[in-house]
């Protein structure tokens, strides 16, 4: 695709603008901002990626991954303000998930160690890890609230903090990972995954695209389960003090 075809495709921005104007929907301003922002942001990312790909310098690749983890941490920490040191727990979780998945991919030679593979796959892994972290933290904080009496009961009977929080922890891990697992059951039936569609449009062999998509799906299973479990086990001890009392 060229810049000429891209400018023609602005038709798809003009259609909603015209409709909004004639029907007085008041969407012109936001539509324009959205269009301009996506052009600027994506082109910037494109050029940065091109620069990193051309340089094939590991330092730049690493820098990109660090930026991804920083952005993911920034987004997810808002949901975990109730948990002490949540920022570090998120950084440790995202980093571990990223290092483990890339370690397996690169270590076993599943994907080549080039920016072309490392960066998009890291983006998907860290992005999904972030979504999972947000889902988990949302659920976990509400489970703690609702089941405070139960936690106190178990502590009062001589249970440890881990025993007192166990069922809330498991419920939160399950609730946050189920959407990832469930969505994979119907994949391809309703909607083609975006990445696979993109590859096919770009001219890849559909079966190759499917194989690659499967790799990503499996990767996201690990990402989902690992993120919730790690974050859960890193977080629950901060809810209690040394005397095994629930902090309120």
């Amino acid at each position: 695709m060229s810049y000429l075809t891209l400018s023609i495709s602005l038709l798809f921005v003009i259609i909603p603008l015209v409709l909004s104007k004639t029907l007085n929907l008041g969407l012109e301003k936001d539509t324009t901002i959205a269009a301009i922002r996506s052009i600027v942001q994506l082109l910037a990312v494109g050029y940065v990626l091109q620069f990193v790909f051309d340089s094939e310098n590991m330092v730049y690749i690493l820098l990109m991954v660090v930026l991804m983890i920083a952005a993911a941490t920034h987004n997810a920490q808002k949901k975990g303000v109730a948990i002490k040191g949540i920022i570090w727990k998120l950084i440790v979780t995202f980093t571990f998930v990223e290092v483990l998945t890339q370690g397996i991919l690169l270590g076993l030679g599943i994907t080549p160690p080039t920016a072309q593979y490392i960066i998009p796959i890291s983006g998907m892994v860290v992005g999904n890890s972030m979504v999972l972290a947000i889902l988990f933290l949302n659920r976990f904080t509400s489970e703690i609230e609702t089941h405070q009496d139960k936690t106190e009961l178990i502590l009062s009977l001589g249970g440890t903090p881990k025993q007192a929080i166990h069922s809330q922890l498991i419920a939160s891990i399950q609730a946050s990972t189920i959407p990832t697992i469930e969505s994979q059951k119907t994949i391809g039936l309703v909607q083609l995954p975006g990445m696979m569609s993109g590859q096919i449009i770009a001219g890849a062999d559909p079966v190759q695209a499917v194989l690659f998509q499967l790799l990503v799906l499996f990767l996201l299973l690990t990402t989902a389960v690992l993120t919730s479990i790690m974050l859960g086990y890193l977080s629950y001890p901060t809810l209690f003090n040394q005397r095994m009392q629930l902090l309120k």
């Binding site: 106190e152 502590l155 009062s156 440890t160 005397r243």
Partner: peptide, 12 residues
């Protein structure tokens, strides 16, 4: 704490 809570039982 665990031993204390077992020997000082509470019905909440």
């Amino acid at each position: 704490p665990v031993e204390l809570r077992r020997s000082v039982g509470i019905a909440l």
